[in-house]
């Protein structure tokens, strides 16, 4: 995080969300600056994925305010599609479009939304395939790829829209262990380019290396947040201490 670009990219204020009796998010407030890499950790069901999905309105909050890129997406009159064009998202299960080839997956949104003509979109797609080290897979069907390859294509697909925020929802959780490194490598390089990234993950090593800030979710609340050193080496919150001791001994 560079101090010169200390612009707020994501502003969240007093957001709540319930599914029936289950209060999954309680009064969440957080600001995330441009170029910042924020990693969200916490036990399953702590609300971190739900929170992430609210940032591009795949989930809607019951109340509270969410401003991304200066657009108030908790306001119903905001054109959410326009906002989403600038927010890339990478899913746990990749969600590549099964009816298209690798290249078509990456080209679909820019062409369909009129951002680029086909030629320009293809040029960009091939560049992105180079970035994720899969240039040779351009014309294959996505079903022939391994999980790690799929996830790297998914990252390339999100980048094709030139977003200025990237959301990662447990991007390595569905991968075989030997595939995880390739995907984290791509994400690390992306962080190096100054991309604003919000990542939900269980990869603590990655969080220590790449995160500017680590946020700990538990019971639908942000219990503690700080630099990786503060969170991993000097945790104050009792639940965070318990969580860390559990995963470190696993």
């Amino acid at each position: 995080m560079t101090e010169a670009q200390n612009k707020v990219k994501v502003h969240v204020e007093k957001v709540n969300k319930s599914y029936g009796e289950n209060h999954v998010l309680r009064d969440i407030s957080i600001d995330i600056a441009a170029n910042e890499v924020v990693v969200m950790i916490g036990p399953s069901g702590s609300g971190k994925s739900t929170f992430l999905r609210m940032l591009n309105q795949l989930e809607t909050p019951d109340n509270g305010t969410i401003v991304v890129d200066g657009f108030d997406i908790s306001d119903k009159s905001t054109d959410i599609n326009k906002v989403r064009e600038n927010i890339g998202m990478v899913f746990q299960n990749f969600n590549l479009f099964n009816n298209y080839t690798v290249l078509e997956n990456i080209m679909l949104a820019p062409v369909e939304l009129g951002k680029m003509d086909k030629a320009a979109a293809e040029k960009k797609a091939r560049e992105l395939l180079d970035v994720v080290n899969l240039a040779d897979k351009a014309d294959v069907s996505v079903n022939s790829l391994s999980g790690g390859q799929k996830q790297r294509i998914a990252i390339a697909r999100a980048l094709a829209m030139s977003p200025d925020v990237m959301l990662f929802d447990e991007p390595t959780s569905a991968l075989d262990p030997e595939m995880v490194g390739d995907v984290l490598e791509v994400m690390k390089n992306l962080a190096g380019t100054g991309m604003t990234m919000i990542i939900v993950t269980h990869e603590m090593g990655f969080a220590k290396q790449v995160a500017d800030r680590v946020v700990f979710f538990e019971s639908g609340k942000i219990q503690e947040s700080g630099t990786p050193e503060q969170i991993f080496n000097a945790p104050k919150n009792a639940r965070l201490q318990e969580f860390l001791s559990k995963i470190m001994h696993a």
Partner: peptide, 18 residues
């Protein structure tokens, strides 16, 4: 069709109809 397909498409900014 897997729900994730729709979510992925929408997350790229494609309107529901597209």
């Amino acid at each position: 069709v897997d729900r994730g397909q729709m979510e992925a498409a929408r997350s790229l900014g494609l309107p529901y109809g597209h």
